[in-house]
């Protein structure tokens, strides 16, 4: 300890490789961080994982999971899956088109820098403000609607779909597309112009290039990005809750509902069970995504 405490001795580089390992107190330096993470990250996770198996009296039970088969939980699981899938696929396609348009321009151009940094911001943009933005534009009092209505195009004749699942999907695209750009652009950048030229010099045309070279190369990245977008939509809460305050169609809203309503008091494990359901689905999708991402990074 005396040697270690002497500032003139380089305490780290000089550590002998062989011989008796010196007793080190270095690990104390990370204790505050790990303690904090344990308290506010690990403990809540443990509370969910264990709490989902406990009933109101504190006894072990699988009841909470049986409640997942309640029709409204099943319905919101299905609805959430559908909305997430649709916005993931649509966001992926539109985001891929936008990425392609970017890549085809100058690599250091103003346009590219602008779109990329805007995407960085918009991919995080969600929640209440986003819902407001759509209400203020295409909502029943928004200027887009008023303008369209005044010109004989009333798109709310069959109900105000903005406050339903359709509208939620449209609003989700606002952050799904930028997220796709962020995730997919590096893959597109990895496509080397030589590959197209090599294809041409070997006798292939544009179709051959997309069918045999660019398509197969980009497909894993595209699929992976789509999965990420799915997980992103699946776990969103704030946007849905700010936009739709009746019916709570999304699974995340069911969690909030189970937590705050009287159900939470009588069935403390119920919200936890839905949370477990959500985390299982999101984790599954994320693992698939990282597998595909690994394959992409090997190629591009």
């Amino acid at each position: 300890m005396i040697a270690a405490g002497n500032p003139a001795v380089a305490t780290n580089v000089g550590r002998p490789l062989a011989g008796g390992r010196r007793f080190s107190l270095d690990w104390i330096g990370v204790v505050p961080f790990l303690a904090y993470a344990g308290l506010f990250l690990l403990l809540p996770s443990t509370i969910i994982a264990l709490g989902a198996f406990v009933n109101a009296d504190g006894a072990f039970t699988l009841e909470n999971y049986q409640h997942l088969s309640r029709s409204y939980v099943v319905k919101s699981t299905v609805d959430t899956t559908v909305i997430s899938a649709v916005t993931a696929v649509a966001g992926a396609i539109l985001g891929a088109l936008l990425s392609y348009a970017i890549v085809m321009g100058s690599p250091n151009g103003v346009l590219r820098r602008l779109v990329v940094s805007a995407s960085g911001v918009l991919a995080q943009f969600g929640g209440v403000t986003l819902a407001f933005a759509f209400i203020a534009s295409i909502g029943p009092a928004g200027f887009v609607y008023l303008f369209a209505q005044a010109h004989g195009f009333d798109y709310y004749t069959h109900g105000i779909w903005l406050f339903e699942r359709t509208g939620l999907g449209l609003v989700y695209l606002y952050f799904q597309i930028p997220l796709m750009v962020l995730v997919f652009l590096p893959a597109l950048d990895g496509i080397k112009p030589q590959w197209r030229e090599a294809t041409e010099s070997l006798g292939g045309n544009t179709w051959h290039y997309w069918r045999h070279v660019a398509g197969p190369l980009l497909f894993p990245a595209f699929l992976g990005a789509t999965l990420l977008l799915f997980a992103n939509a699946f776990s969103a809460y704030a946007t849905a809750n700010a936009l739709i305050n009746q019916g709570q169609p999304m699974l995340s809203q069911q969690i909030g509902g189970a937590l705050s309503s009287e159900v939470g008091a009588f069935e403390p494990g119920f919200a936890k069970a839905i949370a477990v359901e959500m985390i299982v689905i999101v984790t599954l999708v994320t693992v698939l995504y990282s597998l595909l991402q690994r394959r992409t990074s090997r190629w591009l």
Binding site: Q194, E200, S201, L202, G203, G204
Partner: peptide, 15 residues
């Protein structure tokens, strides 16, 4: 066009 010239090409790298 390139794909009808029957020319073999070796690029700088990574092709």
């Amino acid at each position: 066009p390139a794909n009808r010239r029957n020319i073999g090409m070796v690029f700088q790298a990574y092709s």
